[in-house]
Structures are given as C-alpha cells and as structure tokens.
Amino acid sequence: MGSILEVRDLRVAYGPRGRGAFRALDGVSFCLESEEVLGVLGESGSGKSTLATSILGLFRANTIVATGAVLFEGSDLLQAKPDELQRIRGKRISLIFQEPSMALHPTMRVGRQVQQVLAAHGMKGRSALNQKTREVLETVFMEETERIARSYPHQLSGGQRQRVLIAQAIACGPSLVIADEPTASLDPTTQMEILGVFRALRKRLGLGMIFITHNPALLAGMADRLLVLYAGRVAELGPAEEVLASPKHPYTRSLLESIPPLLDGPRDGNKKKLPSIPGDSRPSSLPGAGCPFEPRCPERMDICKTRDPQLVNVSQSHTVSCFRYENQ
C-alpha cells in the first residue's frame, strides 16, 4: 500500500490581494494511503470545502493564490493543464458535493446525468452507455432503478438524490472519492442510510476517501484517520479512534465535548449547559499573529499569542499543532 494522494503545504487565498485576502487554506499537508478513509473535521470557514475543490483544481473565480502541491499518481494537480485535470476529474478522483438538490442539473433526467459522466470519460455507443448507467445506478439503488433513471431531480427524495451523486462519483471507477458534507442536508435516518452506502461501497470498490464533515460523530466507524481543520490549518491529524477517544488539541477536545450526550443521567430541575467554545472562527475574529485558536482556547498560554504552533508528534502517527505538546 503506497500513498495515492499527497497534499503538501497547500495554500489557497481568496478575495482582494494584500491584507484583505482571506486565507482559506494556510499550509495544509497530509497523505492518503490507497483504500484509506480520511475524515476531515472542521466548522464552516475552516477551509474544508476549499480543500475538497482545490485537490481537483476547481478554484473559485476570485482565487488569488494557490501554492503547494497536490501529488496524485505521480503528477502535481496544481500544475496540471486543464485537459489533464479534466481527464482526472470524475475518472480518477471524484467529488460529491454537500447539497444534493443543488449539485444536480434541475432539468436533466438523473440517468442522463450519470451517463454524461461516463460519456465525458470516453465511453461511446448508446447501448453501452445505457447498460453501464443502469449498472452504476444498481450499485446504489436497491430497486426501481429504471424509474429513478428517468426521473428529474425534483421528483426524488433527498436521500435518492444523494445516491445519484454517489453513482456519478463512482461511475468511472475512481481510486479516490472526496465527499464534502454528503449528509448535512439529510434527515437523521436518511443520513445513516447514506453513511451505510458509503461504507458498503468503500468495502466493495476499495475506494480511497476523503470524508469532510462538521460532525465528529459521523466519522466514528467511518474514517481510518482524522484531520481536524481550524482556520485553514491542520490542528490535529491522527488515527480516528485515537483522536476521537483522546483528542489532544484543545479545539478538538472542546468540539467533542460540545455535542450533547445521548444518555446522560436523569436531570435535577436545573438544565445543564453544554460545554461550548466561545466566539467564532470568522476571518474577522481571527488573531493577526500566533495560534488561530488562541482567542477561543481554554488552555491558552502566553506563547500562543505571538508564535505559530508547529505540528508536533504526540505518538508515532498522531500530530497536533499546539504548544502544549512541544518539548515532550
């Protein structure tokens, strides 16, 4: 097993040049082994969606800087020419967007939308295309494949639309699927169902996956490793079980604590408060220097205000960007 994707010091900034620029990704590095699932955890504004699109070289119109390297199958996707990227997108690496109702063409039958992906990657012949489209849809739908293929997105439920997106993503047999909040807009039971689809496919197709979400609980039992993103930087990266069971970065720890436990004991009259992280991570609330989490951190020290923490190893495969763990 070698690594299939290596992201090195990825930096992406938006908006006006100079001081007004918003650094969505500020030096992110990680590796992905083949058939590995990397969970990316981050709140809105952490750069997690930018990470998803940047890997495929899909930059917003107002992107001003994109540096670093995205190494995939021996080439740097950041330096790739448009037609090279086009051949990789959807075929070798595919992307699943968060809002299934927005990510599908509103006036095209969903079967055709799957077919378009196949056709874009060189599949020819009407009957071959139809055949393959049906096969792909059958991998994500138990029944009624025909009816669904003929439907328009607005005639399907949220869960069905999400399955169509998954079908598009796996149609050409990619080795890496990036899913950006694939269940955020779904009902809890549908969410579980879709997570089940991801697990089954991953096992069956041997996919490498980057699973991006704001909800750490979704990653338990899903991800092999976990990358915690805060303000465009890696706060913590390590084996999923280790990070979820004993989070090291103060941000990860507070985040995990802020989720209401399902079975807390009987309550005495007073309602308990959840341990929450004060403040927010909007660009305007971030400090000009030092650790980006410092203003909200319950364990801040003097050094955090002035110096940037570097990633340090707390165990062989677990790194944290926090001064608490330096000199250990």
Binding site: K203, P216, A220, A245, L262
Partner: peptide
C-alpha cells in the same frame, strides 16, 4: 440515527 462516538467498526 443519532450518530454516536463509539468505535465499534463492524464493517471495516
């Protein structure tokens, strides 16, 4: 359907 932070991974 409430996602839980348990680490049992039946399908992995």
């Amino acid at each position: 359907a409430v996602p839980r932070m348990t680490f049992a991974r039946p399908e992995a």
